[in-house]
């Protein structure tokens, strides 16, 4: 299978988004995919036994990236890509699906669980998000500020440190502790 590292613009794109210049979201995703292709491949090789499965998984990840162009905050896109890759690898590992079955499944159920149209899934997702949000709200404001600045303002940790007048290590620590709190919440509630 051809590695989707440098896909050409989609001529069928109805809104011309792919032709809309280097700042279009889909272009940003493509650049991101090219940037992460090496890391993704290394990551997936650790989880899948066959190189062809790695290629298939990369293909699926790329398709899902394009399907989710505007749904993910720019700062969280790398993390999102690896999460999708991990989910897809886990699914492939569990089912040991062939390439054909894998792609067939993608055609039938292209969205990952978080994008489900199933109302029950949406309720569960909403409830999970609410719990995580509540958990983050129990953090000191200084920690939440770092999370918000990093994820939603897309500031680097160095910029955050400069902005808040704190050492870089402190900014990293606050982010890490916020994520630790989420991890605890997820573990305790089996989210």
């Amino acid at each position: 299978m051809v590695e989707p590292s440098s896909p050409s613009p989609d001529p069928d794109d109805p809104v011309g988004d792919d032709l809309g210049g280097e700042c279009s979201p889909s272009h940003q995703w493509r650049e991101l995919f090219d940037e992460l292709a090496g890391g993704l491949r290394a990551f997936l090789r650790n989880r899948l036994r066959q190189e062809s499965d790695v290629d298939d998984c990369l293909q699926v990840v790329f398709v899902k990236m394009l399907e989710s162009v505007d749904r993910v905050a720019p700062a969280a896109r790398r993390a999102w890509v690896f999460r999708v890759a991990a989910n897809e690898a886990a699914q492939m590992w569990r089912s040991e699906a062939s390439r054909g079955r894998m792609l067939e499944k993608l055609e039938k159920h292209g969205d990952e669980p978080t994008d489900s149209d199933d109302p029950i899934d949406r309720v569960i997702l909403t409830e999970t998000t609410r719990k995580l949000e509540e958990s983050l709200l129990t953090l000191p404001a200084a920690y939440r500020e770092v999370v918000s600045l990093r994820i939603h303002e897309n500031m680097t940790f160095q910029e955050i440190a400069d902005h808040l007048g704190i050492p870089l290590g402190t900014a990293l620590t606050r982010m890490r502790r916020a994520l630790d709190r989420l991890r605890t919440e997820i573990d305790q509630n089996h989210l």
């Binding site: 993910v72 969280a76 993390a79 999102w80 994520l179």
Partner: peptide, 8 residues
């Protein structure tokens, strides 16, 4: 990656 996307 899971924690960051959850935080987002």
């Amino acid at each position: 990656s899971y924690l960051i996307t959850s935080a987002a």
